[in-house]
Design a protein around this nucleic acid. Structure first.
Lengths: 332, 332
DNA sequence: CTACACGATTAGCGCGCTCCAACGAATAGA
DNA sequence: TCTATTCGTTGGAGCGCGCTAATCGTGTAG
């Protein structure tokens, strides 16, 4: 298990340790002769530079700390993939943690990440209090994804939920719908923007907004449908769900009520998760560019690391409408 | 950004650096008097030990390297969550990578992980050649998840795919099915065990096995259904799909053919992903204990790290049947 | 043949920490 | 009183590497 060190490579190649260091860092001021000898020796020993020693000596880091609330949520998993791709392209690695949507656990996870003295930290939809984020930003560049802040030292990357919800409403209105209900995401940090986008789009078209409290789960979506159809009001002809899971739950409940989608009721989701793309679901939804969110988060950190920028950035990505099989004109 | 060091804490507390080190590592041989002074100084400066310096000096590591082929696959994401939980419980961190099912990329990812001199490495369903795994195992303990090996230096954690497929067949047979087809996962490393379990279970019941080549995607599942129903043979009354995605694709294609599930055809998936649990899908499937897979992988590494074991372990987890709404007796 | 320049190479310090040998002071035993 | 022993504490070496300043060797000009 004892891996070789630079010293071993230097000895085998018959050069000094410093020269091996130069070769490993790709310095141009090494003769080809020596370079080949060093590379051959390194290959023979199976030598790879020790990242930790390297970053200790160079006082730099090739680590990006990433804290994600819940990896099982495919939305976050795909953002992480985006971060990974961007990090890899620049020679960085991810140290990854989960916070479980608990402030205490997130705090511990963040501390743990910072103990690696990372080049930067990405926080995916954290529930941490602002004070903890402020403190972290004193030690390391911080990027927030799916959460906004006014902190000047912190970058943010979000999708424009208001525009996304507006797209959903516009689509339904153009199909002829007038009674459109929104299932609100309640606690979720992205819910407010979506709700606000829905409300103002409705008003813009002279329609009365109808917001039903719900959650970002399929169970909650089903429950919201039952509460609406059990209620005293004439039922809507279309639903703008809080996210895809919520939409799928709503569709199940509608079918159990004997209603057909989209013949009787149209449904629009949000996120365009892989679930929505399944032909069995084939959900009309709002696409959030997840990999792009991740990429921009990583890029934002790298810009800070390279000292290219000190001003905060506020990326607001534009979502897009993906029309599939759950929307159609209202029943005559 | 310049974080305080042990030296700073020592100076503020009026003690030596070595004493601060002892306090940070929770040594009992420190007087309460001094300990309090050190902790107070550390708190005042916001000091946290530098993990990389620590592991360099101690020649130990608190890093677990994790390479996952594709995080977007929720199966892997959930295994990673299991690893994370176990690692956190023992004070370890994950350095995480993706290999993208490409041998070249996986090789680079593995090298990158090893450059951190991790305590151990977890490879989730790698497509790497055995030689690369052998080489890695010379440098660090290695655990393979969802892939088998004969390498004595490498631990493995798998679910018992043969038993899982057998459970599916038994369930269908007990419902009265006789014509049961299996959609094979082809390239997937777990496919062979499932196929073999299916075949021997069928034979055990005096039924003739019928294996259709497919893939672990919903598109492939749909295609397999069409090829079977377009074929010359009398169609089956039940399908044992390669995994949940394959099953969902099959169900869509069946419905497009005017067949009802489970009235006309029963379908069993594999993995019990969150998809299967959605009420809109409500798929009968084989549950693979994913978090447990992850936990055992982490544990296996930690046992090696702690020197508690040098023999390889071969964990084979028992899957279980989850009956939902896609299976019933065959049509009379 | 000497002086000089310049590129290739090396010695050695320090990154933040762990660990070990060794220290002084206090207590115990003789 | 003197020697052991224990306990809490400290100095210093060294983990594997990056980096700066100094050194070496070679070719060119004078």
């Amino acid at each position: 298990m004892a891996r070789p060190t630079m010293e071993d490579v230097a000895e085998l190649a018959g050069v000094s340790r410093a020269l091996v260091s130069l070769v490993m860092r790709g310095s141009p001021k090494v003769s080809n002769h020596r370079r080949d000898a060093v590379l051959a020796a390194a290959a023979q020993l199976g030598y790879t530079p020790h990242q930790m020693a390297r970053s200790l000596a160079s006082r730099t880091s090739t680590v990006l700390g990433v804290m994600v609330s819940d990896l099982r949520n495919s939305f976050f998993a795909e953002v992480v993939e985006g971060i990974d791709a961007a990090a890899r392209a620049s020679g960085f690695e991810m140290v990854l943690n989960t916070g479980g949507r608990s402030p205490a656990r997130e705090r511990a996870a963040l501390r743990s990440l910072l103990s690696f003295r990372p080049a930067g930290v990405v926080l995916l939809s954290p529930v941490l209090p602002t004070s903890a984020i402020t403190e972290a930003s004193a030690h390391s560049p911080v990027v927030l994804v799916s959460r906004t802040t006014r902190l000047a030292a912190v970058d943010t990357v979000n999708d424009d939920g208001a525009t996304g919800a507006t797209l959903a409403v516009e689509h339904l209105v153009s199909l002829g719908h007038k009674r459109i209900v929104h299932f609100d995401g309640n606690g979720a940090s992205v819910a407010a923007a979506r709700r606000q986008g829905y409300v103002s789009a409705m008003k813009r078209h002279g329609l009365s907004p109808w917001v039903v409290p719900s959650e970002h789960t399929d169970v909650a979506g089903a429950k919201a449908v039952r509460s609406v159809w059990d209620g005293p009001d004439a039922p809507p002809t279309a639903i703008v769900a809080g996210n895809d899971f919520n939409a799928v739950g709503a569709i199940s409940a509608l079918e159990e009520l004997g209603l057909r989608v989209p013949r009787d009721v149209s449904v629009v989701g949000y996120d365009n998760t892989s679930l929505a793309a399944l032909r069995h679901v084939s959900l009309t939804t709002i696409d959030q560019p997840r990999a792009e969110l991740g990429r921009l988060a990583a890029e934002a950190l790298l810009e800070r690391v390279r000292g290219e920028r000190t001003e905060p950035v506020r990326h607001l990505l534009q979502p897009s409408l993906v029309v599939r099989a759950t929307t159609a004109g209202p029943a005559a």
